[in-house]
Amino acid sequence: MDVQNKINTVGKKVYTGQVVSDKMDKTIVVLVETKTLHPLYKKYVNTSKRVKAHDETNQAGVGDTVRVIEARKVSKHKAWRLLEIVERAK
């Protein structure tokens, strides 16, 4: 992560997930999976969400593990941007 990205990450949500689609131009769909504790049953429940992220250079591919960060709305459904690629798909 370079200095510019570190400055912009203050106070913003950062998710890590897998790219499930890269078919759109400059857009990737990232599947973010989390485990949350159910308040009544005290059992961990797996939850997942798909977020659309802005990928300016189209560098992320399907299967890559990426980190995305909150950003201003780029379009109707796209409010995240690609921060870094953690691991490339094999």
Rank of each mutant, 00 (worst) to 15 (best):
M1P: 09
M1T: 10
M1C: 08
D2V: 07
V3R: 10
V3H: 08
Q4M: 09
Q4I: 13
Q4L: 13
N5M: 08
K6W: 04
K6Q: 09
I7C: 03
N8Q: 10
T9N: 10
G11Q: 07
K12R: 15
K13I: 12
K13H: 11
V14Y: 01
Q18Y: 07
Q18P: 00
V19I: 08
D22Y: 05
M24E: 14
D25V: 09
D25R: 11
V30P: 01
V30T: 02
V30E: 01
V30G: 02
V30M: 03
L31F: 01
V32H: 05
V32K: 04
T34G: 00
K35I: 03
K35N: 11
T36H: 07
L37Q: 11
H38V: 02
L40Q: 14
L40T: 14
Y41S: 15
Y41P: 00
Y41A: 10
Y41I: 12
K42F: 14
K42C: 08
K42S: 12
K43C: 09
K43L: 12
Y44R: 11
V45K: 11
V45W: 02
S48Q: 13
K49R: 12
R50D: 01
R50P: 00
R50I: 06
V51G: 00
V51N: 05
V51K: 08
K52L: 13
K52D: 05
K52S: 14
A53Q: 04
A53K: 01
E56K: 12
E56P: 09
T57R: 08
T57K: 12
T57G: 00
T57I: 01
N58T: 02
N58G: 04
Q59F: 00
Q59G: 01
G63N: 09
G63D: 06
D64P: 06
D64R: 09
D64G: 10
T65K: 12
V66E: 02
R67Q: 15
R67C: 10
R67P: 01
R67V: 07
R67Y: 00
V68C: 07
I69V: 15
I69P: 02
E70P: 05
A71G: 10
A71S: 15
R72H: 11
K73F: 06
S75K: 08
S75Y: 09
S75I: 08
H77I: 09
K78C: 15
K78M: 13
K78L: 14
K78F: 00
A79N: 12
W80P: 03
W80C: 05
R81V: 05
R81Q: 13
L82P: 01
L83Q: 13
E84A: 11
I85Q: 05
I85C: 08
V86Q: 09
V86A: 08
E87S: 14
E87V: 04
A89M: 03
A89V: 09
